[in-house]
């Protein structure tokens, strides 16, 4: 088992290296270090010297890949690529273009992200599964038909409408929750209710349909038919057999996205001004803070890869038939 995990880990390394190189090219073609300096130094009275100074300080004055002015080992280490990209592997994100340590920010901001993403996921899962089960329970009836229609309708509405509408209704008209913001401790709750409800509702359409398809497939399998024939009631078969057997795909589906929850939701966070990683990324995009965007790309990739790894491990744990290839 440990050997297996180790092998899988080794497999992720070239993956991350690929991501790293790709992003490096993207980001250094888009904006030369000169542009970044201009942006950070502000507008009034900026001189060329100031720009050069800034570049030296942020390590952007080095050559991109090979430093011919240095000797041996330093030819490689004294380059922008090594300083800015390779160091990510050690989770040394460096400082943002505005001079703040990215690692510290990420550590701080991932918790609010998690606080909103995790309940959304779990609650969403519960609601989705419940809705799907109901649709399966009442299959071939007009209830199922309208359920599916409702799902499609919910799916067809842009997430932006849910947010704009929800904020307008619950915060502005009904004054039930604060419009936006974030608190710590017990205060957090009142800020989280609305975003969580909105993300659950907006996810209900596609989620409900997806789980319904999953359950329907399961329901028509032989063992379920047998169980039903044995005289188990519909509800019993559904909950005991169908749900039980669908648990594996459900769980593995959840495990993949679990690490990515730290990344937060881009739109939700910026609408509700929740200080998570999602709004952090949006800000960075808008400010063109490439150091942050680079770090977030890398972090996202790492988390995704971890998710894959976890899924593999889960599979082997849950289903003994999967061989440890």
């Amino acid at each position: 088992m440990i050997q297996y995990i180790f092998r899988r880990l080794m497999y992720t390394l070239p993956l991350l290296l690929g991501v790293n190189i790709l992003t490096f090219f993207l980001f250094f073609v888009v904006n030369t270090p000169n542009d970044m300096a201009r942006m950070q130094l502000g507008q009034k009275h900026v001189t060329e010297q100031a720009v050069n100074k800034w570049k030296v300080e942020h390590g952007y004055d080095l050559p991109l890949f090979l430093n011919t002015e240095r000797r041996s080992f330093k030819q490689i280490t004294e380059t922008v690529f090594y300083q800015k990209s390779i160091k990510l592997f050690a989770f040394e994100f460096g400082v943002s273009d505005s001079g703040r340590d990215i690692g510290a920010d990420i550590k701080q901001r991932m918790w609010p992200s998690l606080a909103i993403a995790l309940p959304s996921l779990l609650l969403g899962l519960l609601v989705n599964i419940f809705a799907a089960l109901m649709m399966v329970l009442f299959r071939h009836s007009y209830l199922e038909f309208w359920g599916v229609v409702a799902c499609v309708v919910i799916m067809s509405i842009s997430a932006l409408f849910y947010i704009i509408g929800g904020q307008f209704l619950f915060s502005k008209l009904l004054k039930l929750v604060p419009i936006s913001g974030f608190g710590y401790g017990i205060d957090t709750l009142k800020f989280l209710i609305l975003p969580i409800v909105i993300s659950v509702v907006s996810g209900l359409g596609s989620g409900g349909r997806w789980y319904r398809a999953l359950f329907i497939e399961e329901v028509e399998k032989d063992y379920v038919v047998t169980a039903r024939a044995k005289g188990l009631s519909e509800t019993q078969t559904l909950f005991r057999h169908v749900l039980g057997n669908a648990m594996i795909p459900i769980l593995t589906g959840v495990v993949v996205v679990l690490p990515l929850l730290f990344m937060g939701s881009l739109i939700m966070e910026s609408f509700f001004s929740i200080p998570g990683l999602g709004s952090y990324t949006i800000d960075a995009i808008n400010r063109q803070d490439f150091a942050i965007v680079r770090s977030m790309v890398f972090l996202g990739s790492v988390l995704y890869v971890i998710g894959l790894l976890l899924t593999d491990i889960c599979y082997t744990l849950v289903d003994p038939r999967v061989k440890l290839l």
Binding site: Q167, S171, P178, I179, S180, F271, P275
Partner: peptide, 11 residues
Amino acid sequence: LEKETIPYWNK
């Protein structure tokens, strides 16, 4: 921290 003008105004 308040990024959007709408929430600010309503608050």
